[in-house]
């Protein structure tokens, strides 16, 4: 029988799953994690099987990753999202030497040599430089995340956001609105501030190209632009950046199965 593997990436905001057969995609799904991680993991797995028309007849080798990886006790193996994101990106861009993964509650920079992780850094325990920071700032500006990205890209200038603390930065944003600064300029300032935090981590490991980006924030065009301009390099984006961790988990599963 051909080998079927399943990768589950249970993140802080969303749970992602990928089902592969001999490296071929059978199904991919994304659900909000919600408050009941174990239930979400179970639902995600069932829906993946249904979508891949697997029913109850197959027993894929399952690898769980992400902060909620322990929420999937039915998985055969758990592997950190560091290794999974690395493996996932190598599948799409084998030459990658630096991977930036910005998720809901953390960001990481992974250094790869010939497809292997040789070093990595994660954000300190602080929301600045993560998706959560962008969410809070969008809330302060009373726009959606998509609008935040769009208005930032359209803005001709930017205002500097000096607070690195998320809570203080939000009050700074509110103050800037009160003083009548255009939302687009503030949004661009927010993107720049986030990009600076992430770029500092990249620089700590050294800028090595090709550089790729994964995670939900990679879908935010304004953020990608800000990061590219901060780092002075072009970032390569995989087709579904949010799914890279799940892809990597499934591909690693194929090695262990």
């Amino acid at each position: 029988m051909s080998q079927i593997v399943c990768g589950l990436d249970i993140g802080s905001l969303t749970a992602k799953g990928v089902l592969l057969e001999e490296g071929r995609l059978l199904a991919a799904l994304l659900l909000p994690t919600g408050s009941n991680g174990p239930q979400t993991a179970q639902d995600l797995y069932r829906q993946l099987l249904a979508e891949g028309s697997m029913g109850g007849e197959v027993d894929p080798y399952i690898v769980a990753t992400g902060y909620g990886r322990v929420s999937a006790p039915f998985a055969h193996k758990t592997i950190t999202e560091i290794s999974c994101h690395a493996r996932g990106i190598i599948h799409f861009l084998p030459q990658t030497r630096t991977l930036i993964d910005v998720g809901g509650q953390d960001s990481k920079v992974i250094r790869l040599e010939e497809g292997k992780v040789v070093d990595f850094l994660m954000n300190d325990k602080c929301a600045a430089g993560t998706g959560r920071f962008l969410e809070v700032m969008a809330r302060g500006l009373e726009v959606s995340l998509e609008e935040l990205s769009r208005t930032a890209q359209d803005a001709k200038a930017e205002v500097s956001i000096s607070s690195t603390c998320t809570v203080f930065a939000e009050s700074e944003v509110v103050g800037l609105i009160a003083r009548g600064r255009p939302k687009g300029e503030i949004a661009r300032g927010v993107m720049s501030a986030t990009a600076q935090r992430i770029a500092a981590m990249v620089h700590r490991l050294g800028v090595q190209e090709p550089m790729a980006m994964s995670g939900g924030v990679a879908r935010n065009a304004g953020m990608v632009e800000a990061l590219q301009s901060e780092l002075g390099v072009r970032l390569w984006l995989p087709p579904e950046p949010q799914m890279i961790g799940a892809w990597g988990a499934a591909l690693l599963g194929a090695q262990y199965a």
Partner: peptide, 13 residues
């Protein structure tokens, strides 16, 4: 303009 270069050498705290 912040301390982007120093941030590569020193931790935030």
């Amino acid at each position: 303009g912040g301390t982007p270069r120093a941030d590569r050498v020193f931790p935030p705290n």
